[in-house]
């Protein structure tokens, strides 16, 4: 697959102060495990997203290290607290060093 991985994030844009909300994320990526062989029987080198991080106003909320056992087009959902208005930044780090980012502003009203 040669298409640029596109991250998608779904979460509410407004919340009450201190509210816990669910974040659903999806990124298109082949997640080549490094276990498969091509037609000539040679191993296809591993190329996966190895890390995911979530931050709020620059502070880390959680991160995840992924291995070859994560499915293609990795879907992930988890929970965050919205203490005040601010920006959530989600990053996916590829084996080749590329970083794919998605941002979501949340307003406390």
């Amino acid at each position: 697959m040669t298409t640029q991985p596109t991250p998608r994030v779904r979460m509410p844009a407004t919340a009450k102060a201190g509210e816990v909300v669910e974040v659903k994320t999806l990124i298109s990526h082949e997640m080549e495990s490094g276990q498969r062989k091509d037609k000539e029987g040679k191993l296809i080198p591993r190329k996966i997203i190895k890390q995911f991080t979530a931050t709020f106003n620059g502070r880390e909320i959680m991160k995840a290290d992924w291995h070859g056992a994560i499915s293609a087009n990795p879907y992930q959902s988890f929970f965050v607290r919205v203490p005040e208005s601010g920006t959530f930044v989600f990053s996916w780090i590829d084996d080749d060093g590329s970083v794919y980012k998605a941002e979501q502003k949340v307003t406390v009203g």
Binding site: Q35, E60, M62, A64, D65, H67, A69
Partner: peptide
């Protein structure tokens, strides 16, 4: 699996719940 590692999740007190949903092979 060929590799025993699947995923490692790291949480902080900023996370309201030590919970997530993912999909594995």
């Amino acid at each position: 699996n060929p590799n025993p590692n699947v995923a490692n999740y790291f949480f902080t007190p900023m996370s309201p719940k030590a919970s997530a949903q993912l999909r594995i092979r």
